[in-house]
Design a protein around this nucleic acid. Structure first.
Lengths: 233, 233
DNA sequence: TGCCATACTTACGAGACCGTAGGTTACGGT
DNA sequence: ACCGTAACCTACGGTCTCGTAAGTATGGCA
């Protein structure tokens, strides 16, 4: 449910309510008076969901408030406005994704590194699907960095560095690192976006095939690729 | 309100019109009385531009009309509304892209086929940048096909078939064709999206590197890849 | 128990936008 | 020169949404 830790549980033992549906307790709360922090988290959850499915402009503050069982001014009290809420949602999501991906970039061998990164991204997509959808969608205002909307491209910038070093070590032109970085990220990102809807092969299998393609290329595909590192889930 | 996309060129040889670049020089026409067809084309051009840079919801009919030097009702006369205009723009763009890509899928050898497809997509991106941006952005209403917004994914479906045949011929599981199709399209699409802003390497070079990655994989990259087919531009 | 900060509400202003009703101007044929 | 038609305009209704002002309940604590 909640993404970060701070102030997740209410102090009152009272409010029973939300234990009904497993998918996010956020559902027509019975006029419960929450702590500031609690309400804040709830609004973030709801906002994330709505932004993911309707986009920024397609979501109204009133809708968010209604779904939380409160009125608009509460949202304004906490985030100062629609953009404020959106900013927090995006920021947390970016941080989460970056944590997971960069945390996976530890292995020495490039192939294993690729493997872990791909798996990490898929893992993020699976666990934080709504967040991923938001990052893939476009931002409210045109970004400073060019006209490129989707925030995923920012991730690619991170990959550039790693790839650049590797290229230099192998004697390739490091100026090409951005290109290959974009290609790799695009490969995994769009596949992930497709996989979100049709969860046909399991996560590890998808990762294995992606690595298969990225590492061996279409010319030398392995029929049944396996991940080197052994995953649990 | 005809939504179709026929009637491309005005009959009159008179007005300067949009014959030059496809991205059109449409700019603050000085209250010239145009033919229906002319005005229609102009509105389509302007609409494409605005939709590309502000998205569907971020663009107002009034803005489109103003930029064309006319008033709103003219737009409604031609397209019946905002969605009508958007529909025509998207339809034309999809058709254009599909024409170019499927037109490039003729070669026998898979690698050459890949090469041509990648080049064709980059070619489309370069020539019809605004259209590409629209296809990558999300549609006004949630599409019927899943929750996947970007229209580019429809292109991937085309690739599935070709890849499926090839897989069967090579003894791979054809059920994996969608996955690899998504990966390939994503690779080229995101790279293209990046390349739109930073046009650093030339188109042919980008294509060559993409083919390099897709065909040989990171494990066997060629230092200086070249396209097999010889391009002029 | 009474006080007071905090959580929360109703009501409304301002502006943007879509879409339409009905009237007006220019062009081309006769 | 006339007249019809196609192109185009002003003006407005209705809806939606952001954001704010001002007032009300609630729960802990002296």
């Amino acid at each position: 449910m909640a993404i970060d830790s701070s102030a997740s549980n209410g102090s009152k033992g009272k409010s029973s309510g939300s234990s009904g549906t497993p998918s996010s307790g956020t559902r027509r709360a019975r006029r419960v008076r929450m702590t500031g922090a609690e309400r804040r988290e709830q609004l973030l959850d709801i906002g994330r969901t709505l932004f993911a499915e309707r986009g920024y402009e397609g979501t109204s503050v009133e809708e968010i408030a209604a779904k939380a069982g409160v009125s608009k001014p509460v949202v304004y009290e906490h985030f100062g406005g629609k953009e404020g809420l959106y900013a927090v949602v995006v920021d947390r999501e970016m941080r989460q994704l970056l944590d997971m991906v960069t945390g996976a970039l530890t292995a020495g061998h490039p192939r294993e590194l690729l493997e872990q990164a791909a798996f990490a991204l898929l893992d993020y997509i699976e666990t934080f699907t709504d967040g991923f959808r938001i990052l893939v969608r476009d931002s409210p205002v045109a970004q400073s960095t060019g006209t490129f909307a989707s925030l995923i491209s920012d991730i690619a910038t991170q990959v550039e560095d790693i790839l650049g070093l590797e290229f230099k070590a192998r004697g390739f032109d490091p100026k090409l690192a951005p290109l290959y970085a974009q290609a790799l990220v695009g490969m995994v990102a769009l596949t992930g976006q497709w996989w979100v809807d049709a969860r046909k092969p399991k996560k590890a299998e998808v990762a294995a095939h992606l690595v298969n393609l990225a590492w061996h290329g279409l010319g030398n595909l392995e029929p049944k690729p396996r991940l080197i590192g052994h995953r649990k889930n």
